[in-house]
């Protein structure tokens, strides 16, 4: 009996330590975000004068209004809209294209099927940065600088997503496709009525990942948008840093940073349930 009590006690202590560890870790990760939030609620002199305040000030509405409406180069509200259009364009485009190409690769036998698959797979090995100069050249020749299409199209093909959907489609039993064929469904009908609803959780998981990928694009928008009205928010933060001797408007920059985090957080939270299901299991 004694040993048993001892074990329970020990487990109880272990429990506390585990939680303590988790809480400390959480504080470490959360601290910079908290600092950014505090900095976005105080005035410029308060930030510059040490020590830096650790509790929110009274400038919250003033700073955020200033950021949203006027910003530094362009209003943040406007930059957020640009980011949203770009992120959604990239996400939806990537999902549609990769679904269709995975469908073609898995369900149709055509000459060069393997070749096409490997060609798509090969592009995984070339990140945007490697092919950025030729891509810029092409986009510039098409006259797509400073445009949404210029922001979206070069990033829209996705080998990763194609590969993931291919793997998922290959786990769908062949008999399902055959049953649909006997039921009279043409290939696209099968795709639309059966494959697409079955991929729902995978699509949700990819949506979250790709939205954050699109939202966080930095180098590409920086290169092709010279017009401040086309700036996206992530690169816009960098553009707010002063060059030379100008004084940085830190409260507004910090407010912008906080604002920039909100849409990805909303996407993650709203799709959390589907997202996790998409990562851990699939309906079959």
């Amino acid at each position: 009996m004694i040993t048993r009590e001892g074990m329970v006690e020990k487990r109880g202590v272990g429990h506390w330590f585990t939680h303590l560890g988790l809480i400390i870790g959480l504080l470490f990760i959360f601290f910079p975000i908290w600092l950014a939030f505090v900095a976005s609620t105080v005035s410029q002199p308060e930030i510059v004068r040490p020590p830096m305040p650790l509790l929110p000030g009274d400038q919250f509405f003033e700073n955020y209004r200033k950021a949203l409406v006027s910003g530094v180069n362009a209003p943040v509200a406007w930059m957020m809209l640009n980011s949203l259009i770009m992120a959604l364009g990239i996400t939806i485009g990537k999902i549609v294209i990769s679904l269709l190409s995975a469908f073609a690769i898995v369900y149709f036998k055509f000459p060069g099927r393997r070749l096409f698959f490997w060609l798509i797979f090969l592009t995984l090995m070339l990140p945007v940065e490697v092919r950025i100069v030729p891509t810029y050249e092409v986009v510039a020749n098409f006259g797509m600088l400073n445009s949404y299409s210029g922001l979206i199209f070069p990033l829209i093909a996705s080998a990763t997503a194609t590969f993931l959907f291919r793997q998922f489609f290959m786990t769908v039993p062949d008999e399902l496709a055959e049953a649909a064929r006997v039921d009279g469904a043409r290939p696209m009908r099968f795709f639309w009525d059966i494959l697409l609803p079955m991929s729902r959780t995978n699509i949700a998981a990819l949506f979250v990942i790709l939205f954050i990928y699109g939202w966080n694009q930095y180098l590409w928008p920086l290169l092709i948008t010279t017009d401040p009205s086309m700036n996206t928010i992530v690169m816009g933060i960098k553009q707010m840093f002063p060059s030379g001797d100008d004084i940085a408007d830190w409260p507004v920059i910090m407010a912008t940073s906080i604002l920039a985090m909100i849409p990805p957080v909303i996407v993650v939270i709203s799709m959390q349930k589907l997202f996790i299901r998409g990562l851990v299991d699939s309906e079959k």
């Binding site: 008999e175 055959e178 049953a179 064929r181 006997v182 009525d193 059966i194 729902r200 309906e283």
Partner: peptide, 27 residues
């Protein structure tokens, strides 16, 4: 297959997992 006027029952049933029983039969 659809033009042969046949119906087939598969070994693993091959029911559409996201559809109700009614929709499976009605498809």
């Amino acid at each position: 297959p659809m033009d042969r006027d046949i119906a087939m029952v598969f070994q693993n049933y091959a029911l559409y997992p996201h559809m109700s029983v009614y929709d499976n039969m009605a498809y």
